[in-house]
Write a protein that binds this DNA or RNA. Structure first.
Lengths: 206, 206
DNA sequence: GCTAAATTTGAACGAACGTTCGATTCTGAA
DNA sequence: TTCAGAATCGAACGTTCGTTCAAATTTAGC
């Protein structure tokens, strides 16, 4: 899953690795997502990540170059998954309305199933810099491009207006982590339909 | 402006204060908003705030109990202004459509005129705790209540659905700080009308 | 100009941070 | 069983952080 990363880390495929290697790496990333989602990137400590990942503090640095690379791996993997699964879903959708539903469903479902990673992606968008930021930005922009195209097929307006419509949709979808409650909002299909209704027909009375 | 704060600070109105006092306090808050908006609350350093506020590091603690109180003052003041100005605008609006425009206009205009404070409010919503968090939450919830009532007058649906429609609107409006560019988006009335159109009529073609 | 209070300062504290590194333990192939 | 290398660990380094406090400076009223 993390193998497809652009070669920012030393690739070094010559060395032999233990079978546990990938599992351990994923476990650390899971712990990092949890801690960063809760405390923010600056507020999160590598020591806390290590404790949750059942590894020593310095053990983290055997798998990752530094704290930045933890955030990078989380974000790059999440956005890649998001854009990949969206493209798959869009192929199976025919009408523009179905495509919009695919966009909303894909985004919201990813959120429900990967809350920590989602929060880290939305809330720590500006926490990276340099190559890390640039690479994540590229995937993020590709994701936006796909969504904007879908919105464009529905929206009657200029490109400027289509952009704003797509950005409005993103805003609504990314804001969910501020109010969504697993206990209170158990019927996610209902929420998805509601999002679709609001953006398809607006909130005005019939 | 900060005088109306709930008495978390020692009120101490007995002591005499210099005329510069309020100006100095506002200057520090402005600097804090700038730094926190850029670096995040955890990433922002009191030293940086002090430097930008043209005051010594320890001077900050003459005006504020600690770093938390800086964030508290910014957020409480911003939300109070937001809810107060919204109520004024709603009085002058007659139709539900005009009220929705007032909501969007009020929110977006505040953002354009107070970007740093806006970002600090949206991005650092969970950075406070205890009494600070509780007091800000109260004003924030009152603001939401007013907006939800406006949306409810337009939206044909259950309370659950009205909530989600209002939360969608909030999401779109709060997301603007991620894409708004003062140079590129100079016509803010156009943006406001676009927001209104999307939420009033949806994004579907006529 | 004197004085007491308001304001500002500089230096210092302990704590927590990210990162490094040599030593140690574990593991899989011979 | 042996052993090279992968994986983990413990301790420490230097830096930056929020906060404190006594001393110095500035201010307003007499």
């Amino acid at each position: 899953m993390v193998a497809g990363l652009p070669k920012i880390k030393a690739s070094a495929p010559t060395t032999r690795r233990h079978p546990k290697y990938e599992k351990r790496m994923a476990s650390i990333l899971k712990a990092a997502s949890r801690v960063i989602a809760r405390d923010g990137f600056e507020g999160a400590s590598v020591r806390d990540v290590a404790a949750r990942g059942k590894i020593g503090l310095s053990g983290i640095y055997y798998y990752f170059k530094g704290k930045d690379e933890l955030l990078y791996a989380i974000q790059y993997h999440a956005f890649s998954t998001l854009v990949s699964s969206l493209k798959d879903r869009l192929k199976e959708a025919s009408s523009p309305e179905e495509k919009l539903r695919a966009v909303i469903d894909n985004h919201f479902t990813f959120f429900v199933n990967n809350m920590d990673e989602f929060i880290v992606c939305v809330h720590e968008m500006e926490s990276l810099s340099g190559k890390y930021y640039k690479n994540v930005l590229a995937v993020r922009q590709e994701y936006f491009r796909v969504v904007r195209r879908t919105v464009g097929e529905l929206f009657q307006g200029s490109q400027y207006e289509t952009d704003l419509a797509a950005l409005s949709l993103f805003g609504s979808l990314n804001w969910v982590y501020m109010w969504y409650d697993r206990e209170k909002n158990r019927d996610i299909d209902k929420i998805i339909s509601q999002f679709l209704r609001v953006f398809l027909n607006g909130i005005a009375k019939a």
